[in-house]
Amino acid sequence: MTQSQSPSSDTQWPRWEVFKQDAPGRPHQAVGSVHAGDPPHALLTARNVFVRRPAAVSLWCVREDDILTATPEELTTHPALLDTPGEPGTYHVGVKRTNKRSMTFVDLSGTVQASGSGDALRQAQSMHPDVLAWMVFPESAVVRTDEDPGTVESWFAPAKDKTYKQQQHYGVIGRHVGELKRAGLMSGRATSEEGA
């Protein structure tokens, strides 16, 4: 569940979750977060932090206060999450299906009509029962990059010309963790996130 720190302990600007679309027709995916003072600033910093190089055609930002997330375990211990209030309307639903991915965490899978955040979460749970986590937020909370050619050209097109080295380009110091696991030299649990 998303919880903001109390204002007195947090001197940061609000945190915004960033959703990136790699290509037209593809789902927006949560890629991380930025701190920013207002919606246009959030989009600009998101572009700088998350799409200097990777392919993208669109960015969305949503303030963390507008996002409701839950894992199956959290719903078991805190069923009241399903009663979280909110404005009735269109809600986006995101799901996290696996831990074995780097750079993206949650895929947006579609929208639902809901009476509030809790209701949207309930619908997300029933549509996608077997996932690691759900995320919902109202359509009204989304700020988006423009889709005009000028924006796509100046925000996203330059990344296509930029080259960078993939992780596997760099050598591994010592022995690869997968090799150690196969040799029974490491416990599985400690390395469950390996491969990120």
Binding site: V34, H35, A36, L44, T45, N48, V49, R52, P158
Partner: peptide, 14 residues
Amino acid sequence: ILEEDIALANIAQD
């Protein structure tokens, strides 16, 4: 802030 650190480094690289 970190985000602006990255942004300005991006601008410098451009």
